[in-house]
Design a binder for these strands. Sequence first.
DNA 1: TTGAAAGCGCTAACAT
DNA 2: ATGTTAGCGCTTTCAA
Lengths: 347, 347
Amino acid sequence: MAATIRDIAEKAGCGVATVSSYLNGGNVRPANRTRIESAIEELHYTVNETARMLKTDRTRMIGAVIPELDSTFCAQVLSEIEDVLRKHGYAMLVCDCRSDAGREKEAVDFLMNRRVDGLFVIPADSSGEDLVDFQKSGKPLVLIDRQIDSVECSSVCVDNRRAIHSAVDLLTAKGHRKIGMIAGPQTNNAARQRLRGFEQACEDHGIPAEDRFVYYGDDSIRSGTEGLRTLLEQSPDTTAVIASNYQMTMGVVIGVNEMGISVPERLSLIGFDNPQFARAVHPKLTIVSQPVQAIGERAAEIMLRKLDRDANGTGPGTPGISGGRDVAEHIWLETEIIEGHSVKTLP
Amino acid sequence: MAATIRDIAEKAGCGVATVSSYLNGGNVRPANRTRIESAIEELHYTVNETARMLKTDRTRMIGAVIPELDSTFCAQVLSEIEDVLRKHGYAMLVCDCRSDAGREKEAVDFLMNRRVDGLFVIPADSSGEDLVDFQKSGKPLVLIDRQIDSVECSSVCVDNRRAIHSAVDLLTAKGHRKIGMIAGPQTNNAARQRLRGFEQACEDHGIPAEDRFVYYGDDSIRSGTEGLRTLLEQSPDTTAVIASNYQMTMGVVIGVNEMGISVPERLSLIGFDNPQFARAVHPKLTIVSQPVQAIGERAAEIMLRKLDRDANGTGPGTPGISGGRDVAEHIWLETEIIEGHSVKTLP
DNA sequence: TTGAAAGCGCTAACAT
DNA sequence: ATGTTAGCGCTTTCAA
């Protein structure tokens, strides 16, 4: 078995409290300090975090529930968060839900049992009940990329409506009026907002709303390809297509490639996310780009601030009766259009 | 505070041991069973895993140390592992090291303090000391994608030499003799093996080894683009290029795109990983594809088997004196070439 | 500053 | 099958 704090105390000839105090940065007499240090060295002692967790009721672990690890957006955001978190001594527990509501709920329960100090969620398809449940614990919850109406908590999102709106603006400025939209699953807020942005933009530009220009995908590569095919079949007069997330963008590019559609001559394209991918596409793809790094940073920042307050304040308790003590912050970040050569100017 | 096992025992009118037994699937009298169940329901009781951890000296947490979360390969493998693990009640702690040796060591220490029951590592640039340290705890370690000479432990890898060798075979079969290789950082075994496969293949096909055909990248997108440029500058007679990981493949595709090089007319290309990306490239990219899912599955499988044995056997202890009790398994999986249209047949 | 002792919530040995 | 009890390794009063 590994050495314990008792072993150190014994070897250093002092009490366990002194060792504990030393470990936690308290004041210890120089004589004791050196003896403790050499004892630690000798016995290869390291703090048993699990014991600490039980005693302090803080695990220094944060959960992250995400729809798809294998999605650049999620991976980049998580990577950023993990970086910040670990610098502050927190570990990150990741649960990939494969965009499934049931698994999402399971994951939240799983992490609650493990007593994580806080939770990040990129909700794929959640009613929000599980999250409200978590909030009852009084621990911080931060939603990323998507809000949920029934859950009142902090969030970091981009302005999704505006993101797609500006994509439509760009297309109409170049003369497009028959614009196809490959939308995401309407169960999640981000996808809904993006579709709304599309509809709003069409209205603003006097383009009549027609169902035949909208395809409802499921954020997968497959549905991007399928969406393109469907759109072009049912509306051959389409001159431009917008794909509203990265996976579907890749799907659309696969589609034009395999169906032999020339871009932008026959069809103009605007994709989403991943500037590097956009550069790899020929011709370079015009995309809506999200500030992924900033999203991760801001989310981590909010979480750390809340954790800090919990650690010093009244404790994470008093849920429900919190009396407005915990104000939910909503951060909105802007997207940016990176122009490539995939949009043609119509005569 | 949340309800404890004592609260349940009290409310159900039995001893804590009975409740504990119930929670752990032991035999409990029907009468008690129902009363315990309703008490749990009423008090919203959930097991405090941290207490369980301390008592049982098992955290049911597994660490994963990886070079880059934002890499399809890592993300897919992790996603698979996490899936299997969670089904068996294990949580996954992820540490992204940004391909940095120092951070890798820190991550291993960090996870050791947290007393993870096991560790997965995709070593980016590790001397292996930190891993040997971990092994002293007697807990299972599984290396993925890359072995380390100085560390004797189980591993799941692909046959990297053969992977590149077969790529060269394909090129030579189509008449190529001036083949450029964009190699990864020689600090990691996988990259070394891939380069070795290249050299071996050249030798096998009677192609004299020339330094000017090899570029040493760092597995980044940037170095893929840079590698292509360098190769074509210093060896304009190059007719084909192999990129030896996904990031560099994307970099090369960006390069041909932005430099206006026609593929495969002017230059033939073979990439690595990510069949979906290959389909999105025009013309469809010929790639070496790794069985990512199988890699994750096998790794998780090995880990679970070892954990199981530790749980039932002598315990994870007796490290060092284990007397060959723990035989390291080495799994080798095969890669596959998916042909596209990026390789030209030379006259 | 330091030591003794209580106790976090759970499991497991033991006695019943 | 069930209750009692000790103790996992740590932090944190409380006295000294």
